[in-house]
Every structure is written in C-alpha cells, then in structure tokens.
Design a protein around this nucleic acid. Sequence first.
DNA 1: TTGTAAGCGTTATCAC
DNA 2: GTGATAACGCTTACAA
Lengths: 329, 329
Amino acid sequence: MKRKGSSPTMKDVAREAGVALGTVSKVFNGIPVGEEYKRKVEDAAKLLGYQVNTYARALKTNKTLTAALILPNTTDPFFSLLAGEVCKTLARRGYRMLLALSDADPDAEQQCVRMVEQNKVDGIIGLTYNPALEISESVPYVSIDRYFSPAVPCVASDNFGGGQMAARKLLELGCERLLFFRIGSDVPGEADKRGDGFQAACLQAGVEYEALRLRDEDGYAPFLAFLREHLREGRLDFDGIFCNTDKLAYHVARMLAELGVRVPEDVQIIGFDGIRRFGSEALYCSTISQPVGQIAETAVDILLQEDRTHLPSLICLPVSYVSDGTTKG
Amino acid sequence: MKRKGSSPTMKDVAREAGVALGTVSKVFNGIPVGEEYKRKVEDAAKLLGYQVNTYARALKTNKTLTAALILPNTTDPFFSLLAGEVCKTLARRGYRMLLALSDADPDAEQQCVRMVEQNKVDGIIGLTYNPALEISESVPYVSIDRYFSPAVPCVASDNFGGGQMAARKLLELGCERLLFFRIGSDVPGEADKRGDGFQAACLQAGVEYEALRLRDEDGYAPFLAFLREHLREGRLDFDGIFCNTDKLAYHVARMLAELGVRVPEDVQIIGFDGIRRFGSEALYCSTISQPVGQIAETAVDILLQEDRTHLPSLICLPVSYVSDGTTKG
DNA sequence: TTGTAAGCGTTATCAC
DNA sequence: GTGATAACGCTTACAA
C-alpha cells in the first residue's frame, strides 16, 4: 500500500516484489536481470502504479530528456508550425519540449536562455533576434534562421536559392519589370538572403529591378505610397513583385486590389514562407515554401547528435515554388 | 575554479565564499541571512556563474515549477494562440511550460498525460478529445473546452451565450431565414453549446431555422451540396448563416461566392472563434470572438491555486461579437 | 544567526 | 545475476 498523497518509489516496488532496490532499477533501465525477478518487479510496479521519477533520475544521470525551444511568439503561423514540428520530432526521439516565448525582445530572449539553461535541458533550439545572445558552452544550442558563429550550428531554408527561384519564376512567367519588397527585423539574419538571391538572379538574367526594404517599425504604409507613386493611368510600372514574406504579399495584393490593379493579370506576386490559412487550408499567394518539417527534424538531429566535435555551422534546406492565385502559373 | 564541463554546485559556492553550504541555500531561497554573508555568497555565485539546479531542488521540494499543456496540434490558429497565452501566463507566474501534442488521438492524449505526469509537473492544462481520459488524482488538472466531472475544473468560452449572440445579431441585422452549420468532433464538448445557444435564441425570438451538423470526417462537401439544393434562381433560401467556427464560415463564404451569392448583401454570415489572418491581421469574417488570453489566465489561476478544496467545475468566459465583412454591421 | 547532517529517488559500483 | 551502499545537488530540521 502506497503512502497517501505521495507516489510510490523504487523502494516500495522492491519491497512489494521482495527484491533488492538495485534490481528494480535494473529492470527499469533495461539491464539484464533474471526472468523471474523481472516479472516480479513488473507486476509489483503495475500494482503500485509506479513510474520512474524523472527528476531523481536526471539528478543522477545529468540527462533530462528535455529540450527547449525559444521562439518570439506563437501567433505567427510560421513559428507555430515550427513549434509543432519541433515538438513532434522531439517526442519521436523520446524527448519532451519546453517552450519559451521571447516576444522578440533581446532581454527576454536572454532571460529565456538563462531560464532553460538553469532548467538543465539537454539542448536548446532558438529562433532569436538578439545578436549578442550569450549562450552557455555547456548546453548544446542550435539556431534557426540566424547565424551566430561557426561553433553554433544554424539551420535555415535555402533563402538565397528561394530568392533566385522567385526572380526566375517571375521572368519565366513573362514579367519584365521586377520589384522587390522587404519588411522585417533590423537584426541581420538568414532571411536577408532572400533579397540577395533575388538580386543575383536578376543580375544574372541581365534585368533591372527596383526594391523597397523596410523595417517592421515602418509598417506597410510606405509600400502603399510607393505603389501609388508608380501608378500611371491605372497601370503599375511593375508587373512582377517578390515579397520577402507571405504576409507582406498578402498586404501588397490587398493594396493593389484597392488601387484597381489586377492580380495576376497585370501584376504577378510571389511571397515567401508557404503560410496556409487556418494553418492547413489554402495558401495566401504563390510562394516559395519553406520545408518546416525538415527544418525541425534537422535542428533536432543536430541538437541530439552524440558526437559534437564535427558539427556543421550552417545547413540550408531546399525550398519549393508553389503556385496559388497571384501568379499565372 | 569549477570542474571542467560540469556546472558549479552550492558546495563550490560555499567553498568560494568561505561559508557553510546551508548558508548558500538560504541566500538562494530568500531566507534571512547576515548581510555580510549574503554579499559574499552572491559574489561567489556570480564569479562561478552558479545557478540553482532545478532538478535537485525539485527532487527535494516536490515542486517543479513546471506545468504541461496538452493540445491536439499547433497549426490550428486557436490552439497556437492558446499555447502562446498559456505559456506567457505561466512564465509571468514563474513557471515553465512543457508542450505535448496529441494530434487529437485518444491514445496519444493518454500517453501525453502519462508522460507529463511522470515528468512530475506541478499541473496539467489539457484540451483533449478522449472522453475516457484517465487523469491521476495526484496532479492538478484543468480542462479546456471539455467538461469531465465536477472534480476536474473546466474553462471555456461562453459558447451558449455566443450562440445566442449570433442568432440575435443576425435577426437584428434583418435576417429572416436562419441557418446553422456545424462541423466538428464526435466527442461531446463545450463547443456544442454554440448550436444550443443559437437554437435557444431562435426559439425565444419565435423564428424557425434549419441546421446541418457534420463531423470532421464528413468534410465540407455536404455543406456545398446543401447550399446548392437550397438555391433557387440564384437566390438562397436563407439570408443568415451561423457557422460554429470561423474556418467553416470561411469555407461557406467561398462556396457562396462560387454559387454567385453575394455576402453580406444577400446572405450574412457569422463565425465563431475570432481567428485572424497570420495570427494578427484581419479577421476572416464577422465572428463571435473567444477571449483566449482570459481563458489562459483563468486556467493557469485555477491550476496553481493553493487551496484545491473548493474548485469551480465549469467557468465560462464572456465572448464578444466583432463585425468584419460578412455581415452588414 | 550559522553550521551540520539527514534525506529526496535514482543510478552505479562493488563485493557476494 | 543479485543486493547493499555511496553519491547526484539541494532543502531543512536541528544543534551550536
């Protein structure tokens, strides 16, 4: 009979089964033990409803089977999708996931790191915006979308390739006057390469393009103003726009509709991310889709890798073009 | 000098500060200690980069300062929003959040419960679909959107009130022939009351209404078929539709557009949830909006309540009507 | 007030 | 193979 209120311990199981404490431990760690003993222990454990105390085990072994994910928020569909994939991937590996939200605030991010480090997680996956983030050497860290240093592995989409893909696709679809719209954080990150790739492909194809790059704080108004300026007699100076996120593409499409410009007939738009309405329904626009599942899988793989002497410093995963509504194909 | 690879312990701090082990512990637990000693300990801790070992502390105190959230997935915007709010609320209370995803599978849900119980969390918040879910008495549990028994507190929106609100709003906006569309899980839950409330308000107002209630497995096709059947000469038999989710409302609006029925001119639609595009942009439809932040806050409050003898068994939080595009006001 | 020592539930190292 | 026993790092009486 177990003590009221408290859960049974190995000692209880040992007593119930009439074996030694060590034997019980062995059974629960898959260490060979006499068949007879094993059965007795398992029966006793079931009878008592015994479960290994994770905390005692962790204290002893220094492994918590827990990893932490640090994210700005969970409302942005890309982040929430990523959170789900990381969580499921970790679960498949027998790990639990601690979630820490930073609101994209550098101090909060640092606090998150400290918090989870103190919590003795076995590893941290972080998507952060604090360029000076201090990461303890003692706990494995994998960064997503932001490169810190060769010592900190970074996993990201092939942003550069995606940018190229967008430019080439627009040209292939008959666009002749290209435009690049960008909004985002000040902090340099892998996503900046979307514009670089776009530029590279344009250069290579020998076509000019204009660009408007803003920071989050600027809001969307300047884009509208820009479009207005380049509107002559109901016709836009451009016929192909690459937006660095689907969200921006969504806004741009709305602005164009408001301005009476037809999409995709007059202007074709390609976004980046592959966000779906309600998380699983239609896309918002033709887009360069990120392989979120693969990103999660890769990040977890690297994080849990035994041999941490030869880690890659940057891994770029293949993106793909998906047509949906804002392009002619 | 701390041992290589391993983090410093209280013993190290005590040695460094030249005080007793117990004194260090007291400092880190806010137990009064001589000012001189306190300073010495804090200096030593800072020097060594000491952090309390959560696992050792938890083993001793039986409090982990960790709660778990069990959710079907994180792609559904309502779930991801909820996850964020719960995580932030817990963080504000000094708690960390373990996330467990069940994919709405009853067995997986049970496994999640067992997993987090074994992990010795201080409490569990669960949004689950397994009506026979076995919850250990020993760890506080708060259910969201599903009522189990008086002993298990359940937090939900005022679904009934929201349904009433939808019906009254449609009538107020001039609708005369009402329709209720429902899709969802087989498992009874609080959300079913949306339809009940709608019905009650219709009854009270003395107006008839038709309804089509489906299960997730049925898909959206039957709704389209229904609409087609009730379409005579381009005019629908109904002029007001209440959908039990925004997602359904979104699909219905698309179907109507396809059928050439104008929204909101000919038919007005109200959804339920308050989902926003990209998690923070425009709504998809006029809707009954759930107070997700309040739900999270309430659930956490109840979960962490010291006195667990007089717990409420069901708490319904106020919803609000928000007009956006699919109604005339 | 400060120091000492006994556990918390496991795991791991031994003799047996 | 099995069964005592010493840690793991911390909290908490209790003694000084």
